[in-house]
Amino acid sequence: MNSHETTFSFLRDLKPGDWLTLLAGVLCIILLSNKVWNGGIADTAVVRSGGKVFSSVPLSRDQLIEVPGPLGTSIITIEKGKARISSDPSPRQYCVRQGWLEQSGEIAICLPNEVSVELTGGQKKYDSLNY
C-alpha cells in the first residue's frame, strides 16, 4: 500500500466547489478579524488625572510624562507610537501590568492614583467601554 496515497486520500472527497467554499471561509475570517480586531491607528495619548485631562500628547514623539495623583507620581512612557504606564504607586499595579497600548480606544486606568491614559485618533470603535 502506498502510504502517500492514504495520507492525502481525503482530498478526493473535496470537490472543486468545496475548495471554493473553503477559500471563501478563510477570506471571511480574515475580513472579520481585520474588522473586529484592528481598531483605528492611534495618534494621540490623552492623560487624565482625577477625572480631568492632564495633557494630550502626540504618540509620534517619545517622552516620559510624570502625572501627580493622590498616592504619588505615575510615569507614562510614550515610545514608537505606543504608550504605557511604566510606574505607578497603586498597590496592585494593574495598569502597569496591562503593558503597551497600541490601538485607538485602548485605555489603562490606575484607579487608586486616579490616573488614566487613553489612546485616541483614527476611528474610535466605542464611545466608551464599561465592565
Binding site: K15, P16, G17, L22, G25
Partner: peptide, 16 residues
C-alpha cells in the same frame, strides 16, 4: 449543483 459541491460545503455553510 451536486457535481461541484459536496458534504464539505454543506458542513462549512452549516457550521457558519
Amino acid at each position: 449543483p451536486q457535481r461541484l459541491f459536496g458534504p464539505v460545503t454543506h458542513s462549512v455553510l452549516a457550521s457558519f
